[in-house]
């Protein structure tokens, strides 16, 4: 093969690279779809309940659980912030304290 032909060959293949090969995109798409699988089946199952689904969602018990979860999340987030921010600030104070002891 003459040099000019081999260069053309490389260019052609470089252009072909713009399209992913089958070996790449088929598994990638399959993996993307698999990740959706659980959500899809929960949806199917819930829709399959028909009107019962609405009854379940608007029962007092569901609202209690929703409230419980919300309260827990709020408390944990607030308490974590209350612990973490002072600890972070005091730690950065301390580190510099030890670095530049002369100035303190």
């Amino acid at each position: 093969m003459s040099p000019i032909h081999s260069i053309l060959g490389v260019r052609r293949r470089l252009l072909a690279r713009q399209q992913p090969s089958v070996v790449i995109w088929i598994p990638a798409t399959l993996i993307g779809l698999t990740a959706f699988l659980p959500l899809l089946y929960l949806l199917i199952r819930t829709v399959g309940l028909g009107n019962d689904a609405w009854d379940i969602l608007f029962r007092t018990r569901t609202l209690v659980i929703l409230g419980n979860t919300a309260v827990l999340t709020a408390i944990v987030t607030a308490a974590s912030t209350a612990i973490a921010v002072p600890v972070a600030c005091s730690r950065y104070g301390q580190t510099f304290l030890s670095d530049e002891r002369g100035q303190c």
């Binding site: 929960l42 819930t46 309940l49 689904a53 379940i56 569901t62």
Partner: peptide, 9 residues
Amino acid sequence: GIAAALSLL
């Protein structure tokens, strides 16, 4: 079924 509905929620 309840488990599924609650999961979606």
